[in-house]
Design a protein around this nucleic acid. Structure first.
Lengths: 224, 224
DNA sequence: CCACTTCTTAAGCCTTTCTTAAGGGCCCCA
DNA sequence: TGGGGCCCTTAAGAAAGGCTTAAGAAGTGG
């Protein structure tokens, strides 16, 4: 997982102008989706960012799906990949899996089945979320609790933990409210939500966990 | 045994889309089965969860069965493994056993014989169920009773004990209702069953034995 | 076959969590 | 000193999720 909480990130590589957005819309509630329209773009995004799972069409312009998967695997990308093909021929399946895909579906496909297969993929390949340390505190993403160096244990709500993990993932980086919102909260939420959760964290953990950068946003650690 | 109660867990690594589900169905009454369709997935599941026994096909995509067994053994996994091969050649048998398999069968095989060999494997390798401690309490799996540090004795039903043992087997790990259901209850049960048993445990033992992680599931211990 | 225990379901109530919004305080600049 | 912008704090309604209960089903032993 790139970040401990929130929807998993999904890279969808699909050139069909109808099917691409359609799949994206279907999966939107459960994943943060990025749509790439050709193999080259897919390769670039696949190599430069961390994804939780990828869905790759077999037939793609600029770079074929199989070639794309091979390229990603040869660069050490181990993200689970589901390959989509127009044909259900066994040959195609084998080629795809041999190239390094983890699962396979042929079009036309059932939306529910796609969702189920993706769940299975992200589940079996999800690494155990490692604990995150924030100054004198340690966040255990699984139980959503923060333990101080002296043993005191504070349990956080999902949103609180998500925000804390996001900030702590890049100590020193200043996040704007908009960045935090779009990555970890619902699209329509007010920027003020962030303020509220920052306040919760300060109350529950320590007034100094999160630093305010006036006029910009929030930051954690590294703020010597 | 990974857990004191219920059917033993079996990891089946088989890529054949017909044979895999077929074997799974055959063994379903006696084992909790997880089917992995390729070597990589098998390796991941084999390393990240505890299994009572594994059945591994020799020819697998992404990672060969022999390589898979070697990899598991080199990581210290001592679970009994039965290897399946398409050919009955003695060479194959030797290679498989050398790689660390405990038993060997060649396809096509007799369902009854497979079941018998698995019984033999799980029997010889099964350690006696040891008592499990949970905070101030001690669960004796054999008598399904919990004794407090001060001697009070509470007897549990089979399901109560199974749930408690499952949670206590990995203190600190947060289990989702689905995980608990699929591993320790019948397939078709409603997630709400878990809530009911958690309630029973809290009533019989202590309101704090099991911790709720809102929106996720339940956890035992490690919560200071 | 009956009595008793255990298992499973489902419904209603209660608690926690999420989200919004409004008032107050602080700081900078005119 | 006054105004404006920005942030902090609080509170409260809505939504989601968990707890508790009770009752029928299924299983077990006499």
């Amino acid at each position: 997982m790139t970040i401990a909480y929130g929807r998993p990130s999904l890279l969808l590589v699909e050139d069909d102008v109808v099917l691409g957005p359609l799949i994206a819309e279907l999966l939107e509630p459960d994943y943060r989706i990025r749509l790439a329209a050709n193999g080259q773009e897919g390769l670039h995004l696949g190599l430069t960012r961390a994804w939780d799972v990828m869905v790759i069409d077999r037939g793609l312009p600029l770079m074929d799906g199989i070639a794309l998967i091979s390229a990603l695997r040869s660069k050490g990308v181990s993200t689970p990949i589901l390959i989509l093909t127009a044909l259900g021929a066994t040959d195609e399946k084998v080629t795809g899996l041999d190239a390094g895909a983890n699962d396979y579906m042929s079009k036309p496909f059932d939306a529910g089945e796609l969702a189920a297969r993706l769940r299975a993929l992200t589940r079996t390949f999800a690494p155990a979320a490692a604990s995150v340390s924030i100054g004198d505190w340690e966040l255990d993403p699984a139980s959503r609790s923060v333990r101080s160096a002296y043993g005191a244990l504070v349990s956080l709500t999902a949103k609180e933990a998500e925000l804390l993990a996001a900030l702590a993932a890049e100590p020193g980086r200043v996040f704007t409210r908009e960045e935090l919102l779009s990555e970890h909260f619902q699209a329509g939420d007010q920027p003020g939500v962030i303020d509220t959760y920052v306040h919760h964290l300060r109350r529950k953990i320590s007034r100094t966990v999160v630093r305010t950068v006036h006029g910009v946003g929030y930051q954690i650690g590294d703020g010597a």
